[in-house]
Structures are given as C-alpha cells and as structure tokens.
C-alpha cells in the first residue's frame, strides 16, 4: 500500500550475472524462504525493495504530521495520551523500516535526501488535512485499517528484515485501529455536533482511503514482478475489496454513512459492490497537486534542516570524547 502502487523500477538485470546465484535466489523464492541481507539478489529486486520499504518508512514519518496536528488540542487528557503514544509508535515504525532498508546497502541520509527532493514518495493519504478532531478517528479507523490489510501479508514478504519489521509493526498497529474506531464511536453516539463532526470526517476520508491500495490491477504495471519476487502477496484490487467488505459493516456499527451511493452488498458475488474511484484525483495527488503535499514536505525538510546543528554537535562531542579517551590511554601507557 505505501508502495503498492507503481514503484517504477526497471526490471532488467544489472550487476554481476552469476547463474548459480540467480538459480539459488529463484529456488529460495519458490520455496517461500526468506532472502537475507548477504544473499545475492537481482539488482532490480534490491532497488524495488529499497524504494518500497523506504517509501513505507517515509509514510510513517510524514503521517506523524496530520495526526500530530491534534495533540495540543485533544479534547480530553486520556485522548491526548493515546494520541501521543500513537504518533510515537509511528516514529518507531519509521525507524524500524529505515533500519530494514539500510540492510540493503543504503544510508538513511540518502533515503531522506530522496524524500526531501521528491524522488521517493509516501502514502498519498497523508496529503489530506486533518480538519477536525474526528479526522484523527477516521485516520485510525480507515487509514490504519487499510494499512493493516496490506501489512499482514507483508509479514510473509520474501525479504527477511522487511518481514520481521512488519511483524513488529503489526503487533503495535491493531491498537491504533481500535483507538480510531473508539473515537468515532464515542462521537457518533455523542452530541449532534459530535456526530456531525464524525460524519464530516468519514465523508472526506473514505475515498482517499480506498485510493491507498493503488491503481486498479490492469494499470499496475510492475505488480507482476513484485508478485513473482514474493514482495507483493495480493493484488491492489483484492486488498481494496477486502477492505470494503471489512469496513462497510463497521460503518453500520458506528451509525455513520459512507459517501458512496453505489455501495451495497452483492449476495451473488459475496462481496460489497462499490462506486467508481476518481483516479484523476489520485493521479493529481500523487503528482504533488494534493491539498497538503507542499506543506508536508516543507515541514519535514525544515525539521531536518533545523536539526542539523544539533546532530553536528552530538557528533562533535562523540569525536572529542573518543579523542580524549585515546589521549588518556596513551598517557597511561607512557607512565
């Protein structure tokens, strides 16, 4: 999901062509075994993974902004605490994922450069603003719900460090979705003002959540390769359908409507039918023309730039301490 859509990598092999290594790699994939950091892997596999895992990491980090937006205004101390914990988890998830990406032989600084200059992306959903408190609930219920749908299969992704990071993340993620649902349930069963707030949030977040699963299968050109490599376990449309099937009944429990007149249970198919997604909007937002794209990146870049003097100071101190210890050792030897 955070990289489920068009990853845009070349599929032609680069790097050393080693027949045995390729065969070994293929056998591991076929046997559903894990590829580990020191295994030979096709260059394109490495590049695809770097892009996908990094974009997943970037999504977690950027995602801290729309939710962090409501920490100082949370309407109860309990909700404030839960929200801080959630955003903290997201920072942690970003770190696990950067850590997994780095095992592929790339530095976090390089990944951040690519995020900051737009070469790597993050999930389109975080380009939408959080305009009221209920949006925090909608993000938990819908966005995290969609994320879980994608993340559970990734726990069996072929690349070991990514799969293991996903297991860690999934353990922490279920609390997030439940909290979002709980916020909305409280609102929809509260005052008329609160119920209207909740409905407004769902009206704005429903369609963008469906878009999180990426373009329709027939337009997803690199999915076939990702599937063959065990990176992608289910197609975009399959996951999207599962999400709708899971979420539509939950909306009824919430007593909130979903903004889709074509949404209805189809007994023949055994699934919910739903309306057409505005793929033009999706394309626009991916391209950078969403409500918050510029702002999200600007704030991210600014945090990084503003922090440079701090990071440098820490490194300078570490170097000084190392030099002092070295000098002390030499002195001790000399005496």
């Amino acid at each position: 999901m955070y990289g489920n859509y068009d990853s845009g990598t070349a599929s032609s092999p680069g790097g050393p062509h080693d027949q045995d290594a390729q065969q070994r790699f293929d056998r591991l994939i076929e046997a559903d075994q894990r590829i580990e950091p020191r295994d030979w892997m096709p260059d394109a596999y490495r590049k695809t993974l770097i892009r996908q895992i990094a974009q997943h990491a970037h999504s977690e980090i950027i995602g801290m902004q729309p939710e962090g937006n409501w920490i100082t205004r949370a309407p109860s101390l309990r909700r404030k605490a839960i929200l801080i914990a959630k955003v903290q988890d997201e920072a942690g998830h970003g770190l696990y994922l950067y850590s997994a990406t780095e095992t592929l032989g790339i530095d976090r600084e390089e990944l951040l450069d690519r995020l900051h200059d737009g070469r790597q992306k993050y999930s389109s959903i975080f380009n939408y603003p959080t305009l009221n408190w209920a949006d925090v609930g909608a993000i938990g219920w819908l966005v995290d719900g969609a994320a879980i749908m994608n993340q559970v299969p990734l726990c069996r992704c072929s690349y070991g460090p990514y799969a293991r990071a996903m297991v860690r993340i999934c353990k922490e993620e279920s609390f997030h979705q439940r909290q979002g649902f709980d916020i909305l349930h409280t609102l929809s069963h509260g005052t008329p003002g609160q119920k209207a707030m909740a409905q407004d949030a769902v009206n704005r977040y429903w369609w963008p959540s469906l878009m999180m699963f990426g373009p329709p299968d027939e337009e997803s050109s690199h999915s076939a390769q990702s599937t063959a490599w065990g990176i992608k376990r289910f197609s975009n449309d399959e996951l999207r359908q599962r999400f709708v099937d899971m979420t539509a009944p939950q909306a009824e429990v919430l007593g909130l409507s979903l903004p889709d007149d074509d949404l209805r249970w189809n007994a023949e198919r055994g699934h919910y039918d739903f309306g057409a997604i505005d793929w033009d909007e999706f394309a626009r937002v991916i391209r950078g023309d969403g409500p918050c794209n510029a702002e999200r990146l600007r704030r991210r870049r600014q945090a990084h730039d503003d922090g440079e003097w701090v990071r440098e100071a820490a490194q300078a101190y570490a170097d000084k301490q190392a030099a002092r210890q070295q000098a002390a050792r030499q002195e001790a030897r000399a005496s």
Binding site: P16, A21, E36, P37, R38, E102, L104, G105
Partner: peptide, 21 residues
Amino acid sequence: SPDEKDPFFDPAQDKVYRHPT
C-alpha cells in the same frame, strides 16, 4: 553466514550488510 550466498562473500569473516560506510 555461509547460508547467505554472495559471490564476493569472504567466508572467513565479513560485514553484516554490504554497506559502503
């Protein structure tokens, strides 16, 4: 990690990742 096959892997001792730094 002899099980992780890499043509340039030094069987005696090597680094955990192929990280340039």
